[in-house]
Amino acid sequence: MAPLLECRSLTKKYGNVIALNNVSFTLERGRIVGLLGPNASGKTTLIKLINGLLTPTYGEILINGLRPGIESKLQVAYLPDTTYLNDWMSVKQLISLYSDFFSNFNVSKAYDMLKRLDLKDTMRIKAMSKGTKEKVQLILTMSRNADLYCLDEPIGGVDPASRDYILNTILNNYNENGSILISTHLISDIEQILDDVIMLQFGCLHTHKTVDEIREEKHMSVDELFREVFRC
């Protein structure tokens, strides 16, 4: 079986700015991976490349052995870092849009999660707070039956209690053939649920290790390591 995600010498330039520089790594199946790095280190660029929203300047990216395209988009569930939904739509309309759009969307799972987070399906995006919008977007993404979930800053605006529920949702949805790639700055909140950490610095791969390897070698948490490596 081809690896879930493989990046080979992946490079992306925006004009003269190098956003990603010669990044190579392989992502195994059944892992929860934290994509960490300071601002402008290339995290979102990497996620957009995985989703085929950008094309590499050099190098190659393969999902289940395929280049990003129609087939890979079914296998990758993507949560962008901005609101991308039509704000006049209600949750109910969005769920029906999603189930129309993605053959692997599980409607009952979506309603189940809505109920657990006390969200009404009649609510319109326009009328929602930042945190509620994030919850709805996350529910829509996690309700898909995908191989790779790419979550770009999923919990930034969410309160700590809901954050716990969301992390639990992620753990509950974890399947042995799929992996979850989470980009975030809230490292200490998600550290316990991560298998591996990918750290980017100035567009280059700085570290790709398991959380317990980092703790064993450095005697510090990933959060502490991050603060040390990227001290300003």
Binding site: G30, R31, I32, D164, L167, N168, L171, N172, Y174, Q192, I193, L194, D195, V211, D212
Partner: peptide, 14 residues
């Protein structure tokens, strides 16, 4: 157990 402890199942497996 992993969900009870809020940790990754692979870590609990280990």
């Amino acid at each position: 157990l992993a969900i009870e402890a809020s940790v990754n199942p692979n870590t609990m497996q280990k």
